[in-house]
């Protein structure tokens, strides 16, 4: 059975200083949960991409992180939320190389590849919530299929 712990932290994302805090928090929490170095690096990188999107495209928002447990396997769920303009076409936004600004357009699709579970809740003028989960042990089912 999967159990969600308390909200580990709620961090503001409103400056590039905050992006550094997000990276630091995710690194430290993942290390405490027992993630290996490569998995820590993947999760921190995904978090950096998503937090920057919250800041740059969403006009700022928050990160909520929750520790998970599934038997002896530990997990970390990260939710990046903003009340910005939303993503009108999520499929297009996930396409490698697509950017509405001057980025590389690799953040959203890249973050999806770096985590075990990934979902986006967004729409025009509805803000954006991106939720990702990674586990200390890769789940047996294919990535993202929960």
């Amino acid at each position: 059975m999967q159990t969600a712990g308390r909200v580990e932290a709620s961090l503001p994302i409103s400056s590039d200083m905050d992006l550094a805090w997000v990276r630091q928090h995710v690194r430290q929490t993942a290390a405490e949960l027992g993630f290996g170095l490569v998995e820590q690096t993947k999760l921190v990188t995904a978090a950096s991409e998503l937090a920057r999107n919250t800041l740059v495209h969403g006009g700022g928002g928050r990160l909520e992180s929750v520790r998970l447990a599934n038997g002896h396997v530990r997990g970390l769920r990260l939710t990046f939320a903003d009340d910005g303009p939303g993503i009108p076409d999520v499929e297009r936004a996930l396409t490698d190389g697509y950017t509405s600004g001057d980025g590389l357009g690799m953040g959203l699709g890249g973050a999806r590849r770096l985590v075990h579970e990934f979902s986006i809740d967004s729409g025009p003028d509805a803000g954006t919530r991106v939720t990702v989960i990674s586990w200390t042990v890769r789940p047996p089912h294919p990535r993202g299929e929960v």
Binding site: V38, Q40, T41, K42, E49, M106, G110, A111, R113
Partner: peptide, 12 residues
């Protein structure tokens, strides 16, 4: 090495 592996998956 962990950064290199991550970059590949990120697609950079």
């Amino acid at each position: 090495p962990a950064v290199a592996i991550t970059l590949v998956e990120l697609g950079l």
